[in-house]
Design a binder for these strands. Structure first.
Lengths: 403, 403
DNA sequence: CTGAAAGCGCTTACAG
DNA sequence: CTGAAAGCGCTTACAG
């Protein structure tokens, strides 16, 4: 119990400078002149003491290493030492400075999450899945919103590397021609990356995505088996010029998000399987917005041979179609059958309740976090590409056509 | 241009130990035995070099301080030195280690965001507002989901302090009697806290919230002015026993979230202003879930004197009411008038399109981030309590009653 | 088991 | 302007 203070102050604590350093949390009385030149009184911010291991060790009357061992739960310490240290820590209200810990260990227990739009219910649900898994494993998440802007995505990844995150989950913006240098930089620096929802063709790494091809296939087939033969696809590639051939469509989709590309492929394959020709005019191209979809829908409905049904592969696309139905006092499924994408509590109260393919939103997030954690721990990942399946929820927006 | 290496290695670089330290990013050839006892080959993880200022300085042939000054953009460096340093940095692919920077400066340029449910569209929108403002100012956000669990909230705040965040935005869980020790701890340690959406009565600090009282008042008044006299409130305090007096209701609300309390007060005040007595049986209490609301709605509708209208103050409450309407083949507004809370793209396509009070969701997030940044910069905050207003969007779920 | 020392990679006075 | 040194608060060998 001797409170010897001998040797408890390291050489570096004896600064040669008589004047303490000036910093916001300096804790000394008087005033500081900060870098910006503004004079601040300490009493204004009243920076409470954040005790360090040194203080705890001194109060407990042990060396800093012993205190660190007791506090950090590593190495070995006698029971009596541990007790004294923990008591001192409690008395001072000590909490580990994780920043300093990270400097030593090289791990921050923080992962970076780069998403296209966190206000979008899809990504909000995904984010929830990620944070739940990470939190359970003791990891924090830094989240960044890119709004589908590649430059913001690049800047986000750069900053995350600078902050030394242990891994990154990203829903990359960009299609086949998009470069993945920023993500490759992360990987080459030893920071694992898992792609979520979309995949970049230049980045062969692990990814967790919906089986979009299968989902669009199922949506189309649902309409085919109800007897529909002219089925539109609302949300296609954002090509500049409207494609007038299926091949043109596929080329355009190649430059789009992998989700858009895969859903187009699934749609086309369902038609082909049914022995039906695909009509490029029934596939939306161009402006990927609610208004863009509304415009496409109006045109399609006023064409010579209008569709009797539409596969709607985005929430915003559903909104665009619903808008036109209302405009033209049309009713679904009487005038147009619909199979949507993404479920939401509201969807069953729409008129009509929409038949949709529901994505396992939260699970996509959870799986991506699990894959990332496995990667960070050096464990072999289950697969380089994890496909999750959408679930068809039948409601009443699909009418049967007399055949 | 002399590449003198004299003096470029500090004392500490000359370690007395002949064996380099073993850590994942050690970069040396051969293998490491990590703490977990697993032998890993360096070539497995191929940890790319993360060059430090020391390497850059050496390559540029200048001292570490000069390199640091050139890289960090502080102090003064000659142009030629700066050029050589920047060239060397580019060649090595140098990026600042923000962790180390934070150790020195005491600021992490990271804020903590503690929300009740990030998958909820309200909080998802709020989060977006926060991250947009923070990103523009060069701050990252660590986000944590609490699911309205006080213990998770406390743990989150503790961890954020340990990670040395510069400030915290929190939507606190808990009512009047909830203790705010974890948040007070943050403040007393010099880490500013702003409350969002809800306020804790024990924490008088700055907060950004909706003017819930005014919003509920407006919703109720909308129904009153349409001639309704028996108006229910769907989503009230979660008291154990159903309150049979208005005073009992208010007492229960005092222990609930501030949002619930304020909305009840606004509802009651509108009735009082209209000279109408409040009927406690028309106010939901207890189970705050979709099912709870459905149960309440069923009972209210089957009572002796059923309500002709209901003020619905939560999204989940709207779902509960809609469920009962469907169950009983009732139609709004013919059988029941509705004023809801929170808008969403779907709401206009519901049957009927709901009249709602729309919250400025993103703005709530933006303002809270702005207040926090102001606080962190020591600038006086505009007000300790910022009230934002909801906007009434009239659609067709309110029927006029013959008076 | 224990303590002193070195190191993580920066920034910040200090002394040329 | 420039470089050597000290320090941020931890963890990690090392030597008792």
């Amino acid at each position: 119990m001797s409170r010897s203070s001998i040797g408890t102050s390291s050489r570096r604590r004896r600064t040669t400078s008589p004047r303490p350093r000036c910093r916001p949390r300096c804790g000394m009385g008087g005033s500081c002149i900060a870098r910006d030149g503004v004079i601040r009184l300490d009493t204004v911010t009243t920076p409470g003491p954040r005790p360090t291991i040194t203080e705890v060790a001194r109060l407990a009357g042990v060396g800093r290493s012993s205190a660190a061992r007791a506090l950090g739960g590593y190495g070995s310490v006698s029971e009596s030492t541990r007790d004294r240290v923990l008591a001192a820590a409690r008395e001072l209200g000590y909490e580990t400075n994780e920043l300093a810990r990270s400097m030593s260990t090289g791990e921050t227990r923080t992962i970076g999450v780069v998403l296209a739009d966190i206000a979008n219910p899809f990504f909000a649900g995904v984010l929830r899945g990620i944070t739940e898994v990470c939190a359970a494993e003791g990891f924090d998440t830094i989240v960044v919103n890119t709004d589908e802007d590649v430059e913001r995505e690049q800047a986000a990844v750069r900053l995350m590397l600078a902050k030394q995150v242990d891994g990154i989950v990203v829903s990359p913006t960009g299609g086949a021609d998009a470069d993945a240098d920023h993500l490759e930089a992360a990987i080459s620096r030893g920071v694992p990356v898992v792609q979520l929802d979309r995949t970049l063709s230049r980045l062969p790494g692990p990814a967790v995505v919906l089986d979009n091809r299968e989902a669009a296939f199922a949506a189309t087939q649902e309409l085919l088996s109800a007897g529909h033969r002219r089925i539109a696809l609302a949300w296609g590639p954002r090509s500049e010029v409207p494609a007038d051939t299926v091949a043109g469509l596929q080329t355009a989709a190649q430059a789009d998000l992998s989700t858009t590309r895969e859903r187009l492929i699934g749609y086309l394959r369902a038609l082909a399987d049914a022995g039906l020709p695909a009509d490029p005019r029934l596939v939306m191209t161009g402006d990927q917005t609610v208004d863009g979809v509304a415009r496409f829908t109006r045109e399609a409905l006023s064409a010579e041979r209008p569709p009797t049904a539409v596969v709607v592969t985005e929430t915003d696309a559903a909104l665009g179609v619903l808008q036109v139905l209302r405009e033209q006092s049309l009713q679904s499924p009487r005038d147009l059958s619909l199979v949507g994408f993404d479920d939401a509590p509201w969807v069953q109260y729409l008129d009509p309740p929409l038949t949709v393919l529901s994505q396992p939103v939260e699970e996509l997030g959870e799986r991506s976090a699990q894959e990332l954690l496995a990667l960070m721990r050096g464990r072999p990942v289950s697969a380089s590409l994890v496909h999750l399946s959408a679930r068809l929820i039948r409601r009443s927006s699909v009418a049967s056509l007399p055949s």
